Amino acid sequence: MTQKAYTQGSTFPPTKPDVLRIYSMRFCPYSHRARLVLNHKKIPFEVVNINLKSKPDWYLAINPLGTVPALQIDDKVITDSVAAAEWLDDVYTESRLQPSDPYRRALDRVLLEYISKFYGSFRDALKSTDPTTLQTNIEETKKHLQFYEEKLKARGEGPFFGGSKPCMFDLLFWPMVERFPVLAVMKESPTANIDADKFPTFTAWVQAMKELPELKATGFDTDSYVAFFRGYLKETPDYNLFLKE
């Protein structure tokens, strides 16, 4: 099966009985979430990448929203990155990621909801063309990072939000953090860099996360994200970037 993105007019790749499939896009942070969970739990799966600018009709029949990720196994289809991740954790019970304590799970849900503020200000900064607006957006993003710095420090349990081991929130947050360094490169703004002295707990978390096998099996380096985002900002994203097949 090709890694290249299926586009309008393409033929639907037939599913196989009992084989879990993820509909994805290689550079999408939300798809990245699901792939992290799949790799963490060592779940066998196949990937079908989707061209989000020219979606196949057969994909819209599977997921009318046209978003990724979506999981499919036999007649079951799960859309939305959080729903997909939680479903995987509930069905494949090895290496559980969700906290067993209901209160802790609720606290992690609050952290999860706050990601939209962090990633929203990051995207605003990435799209900024005015230097003053850019700096305002960078400062706003740093404010949201400070929120996570304080929450992680308050837990005081280990390098991860889950303590000595990563929890679901760690994996759901990471894709947005992995993309953050593109800001300093694309905007040529040193102020976008994360100062380890100001964010020591968050910086330690980043370093611990980078050592996880599931992270090494997914995602890209900063230069690769920069290359993708340059096309994305021009509304000409190359979903097949770096693929030769």
Rank of each mutant, 00 (worst) to 15 (best):
D75F: 04
S24P: 03
A34P: 02
N49G: 03
T7R: 14
I43Y: 00
A34E: 03
T11L: 11
L38C: 01
I50W: 07
Q72P: 00
L36V: 07
A5I: 13
Q3T: 08
K42G: 03
D75T: 14
G66N: 06
I78P: 00
I43L: 01
N63Q: 10
A5C: 13
A70P: 02
F27L: 09
G9W: 04
R26F: 09
K4D: 04
D74C: 08
T11D: 12
P44S: 10
T67Q: 12
L60G: 09
I22V: 15
P64T: 05
A61V: 07
P44A: 11
V47I: 15
L71V: 01
I73Y: 00
A83L: 13
D74A: 07
A61T: 14
V19N: 02
E86P: 04
Q72E: 15
I50F: 10
L52R: 06
P14L: 11
V77W: 03
R33Q: 12
N51L: 08
L65T: 15
L20N: 07
P29H: 05
P44D: 13
K4R: 14
T15S: 14
V68I: 13
F12C: 08
I78R: 02
D18A: 13
P14V: 11
L65Q: 14
P69F: 01
K53R: 15
Y30W: 12
D57K: 12
I73E: 02
S31M: 04
P17C: 04
A70C: 11
N49F: 10
Y6Q: 07
Y30T: 02
E86H: 10
